Simulated scan of single mutants.
Amino acid sequence: MTEYAYGPVEILLLGFDGNQPRAALREALADLVVEGSIRLLDLLLVSVDETGGISSAELEDGADGYGLGGLVLAASGVAADEDILEMAAHLAPGTSAALAVIEHTWARQLASALAESGGYVIHTDRIPAPVVNAALAELAD
Results as ranks from 00 to 15, higher is better:
residue 18 G to K: 12
residue 18 G to N: 11
residue 18 G to R: 08
residue 18 G to H: 07
residue 18 G to Q: 05
residue 18 G to V: 06
residue 19 N to C: 06
residue 19 N to Q: 15
residue 19 N to V: 04
residue 19 N to D: 15
residue 19 N to T: 13
residue 19 N to S: 13
residue 19 N to G: 12
residue 20 Q to N: 00
residue 20 Q to D: 11
residue 20 Q to G: 09
residue 20 Q to Y: 00
residue 21 P to Y: 02
residue 21 P to W: 05
residue 21 P to I: 00
residue 21 P to V: 01
residue 21 P to L: 00
residue 21 P to T: 00
residue 21 P to Q: 04
residue 21 P to D: 01
residue 22 R to S: 08
residue 22 R to E: 09
residue 22 R to L: 06
residue 22 R to P: 10
residue 23 A to E: 11
residue 23 A to H: 03
residue 24 A to L: 11
residue 24 A to W: 04
residue 24 A to M: 04
residue 25 L to T: 07
residue 25 L to K: 01
residue 25 L to R: 01
residue 25 L to M: 07
residue 26 R to A: 08
residue 26 R to W: 06
residue 26 R to N: 09
residue 26 R to L: 03
residue 26 R to C: 12
residue 27 E to F: 02
residue 27 E to M: 07
residue 27 E to G: 00
residue 27 E to V: 06
residue 27 E to S: 12
residue 28 A to G: 09
residue 28 A to N: 10
residue 28 A to W: 02
residue 28 A to Q: 13
residue 28 A to L: 14
residue 29 L to W: 02
residue 29 L to K: 00
residue 29 L to T: 12
residue 29 L to Y: 03
residue 29 L to E: 00
residue 30 A to R: 15
residue 30 A to C: 01
residue 30 A to W: 02
residue 31 D to H: 13
residue 31 D to E: 14
residue 32 L to E: 03
residue 32 L to M: 12
residue 32 L to N: 15
residue 32 L to G: 10
residue 32 L to A: 15
residue 32 L to Q: 13
residue 33 V to C: 13
residue 33 V to I: 06
residue 33 V to K: 02
residue 33 V to N: 04
residue 33 V to H: 01
residue 33 V to Q: 06
residue 33 V to S: 02
residue 34 V to K: 13
residue 35 E to W: 04
residue 35 E to N: 14
residue 36 G to I: 05
residue 36 G to F: 03
residue 36 G to K: 09
residue 36 G to Q: 02
residue 37 S to Y: 07
residue 37 S to R: 15
residue 37 S to C: 07
residue 37 S to L: 07
residue 37 S to I: 02
residue 38 I to P: 04
residue 38 I to D: 03
residue 38 I to G: 04
residue 39 R to Q: 14
residue 39 R to S: 14
residue 39 R to W: 06
residue 40 L to K: 03
residue 40 L to R: 01
residue 40 L to V: 10
residue 40 L to M: 04
residue 41 L to A: 06
residue 41 L to D: 10
residue 41 L to W: 03
residue 42 D to L: 09
residue 42 D to Q: 14
residue 42 D to A: 09
residue 43 L to R: 04
residue 43 L to N: 05
residue 43 L to K: 05
residue 43 L to V: 08
residue 44 L to S: 01
residue 44 L to N: 03
residue 44 L to G: 04
residue 44 L to Q: 13
residue 45 L to D: 01
residue 46 V to P: 02
residue 46 V to F: 04
residue 47 S to F: 02
residue 47 S to P: 01
residue 47 S to G: 12
residue 47 S to I: 03
residue 47 S to W: 00
residue 47 S to N: 07
residue 47 S to Y: 00
residue 47 S to D: 09
residue 48 V to Q: 15
residue 48 V to Y: 05
residue 48 V to I: 03
residue 49 D to P: 05
residue 49 D to S: 05
residue 49 D to L: 02
residue 49 D to I: 10
residue 49 D to G: 10
residue 50 E to V: 09
residue 50 E to L: 10
residue 50 E to D: 15
residue 51 T to D: 15
residue 51 T to F: 11
residue 51 T to M: 08
residue 52 G to C: 12
residue 52 G to N: 10
residue 52 G to T: 09
residue 52 G to D: 10
residue 53 G to H: 11
residue 53 G to R: 12
residue 53 G to P: 06
residue 53 G to N: 11
residue 53 G to D: 06
residue 53 G to K: 11
residue 53 G to F: 09
residue 53 G to T: 12
residue 54 I to K: 04
residue 54 I to C: 12
residue 54 I to H: 06
residue 54 I to R: 09
residue 54 I to D: 10
residue 55 S to Y: 00
residue 55 S to E: 14
residue 55 S to A: 12
residue 55 S to T: 15
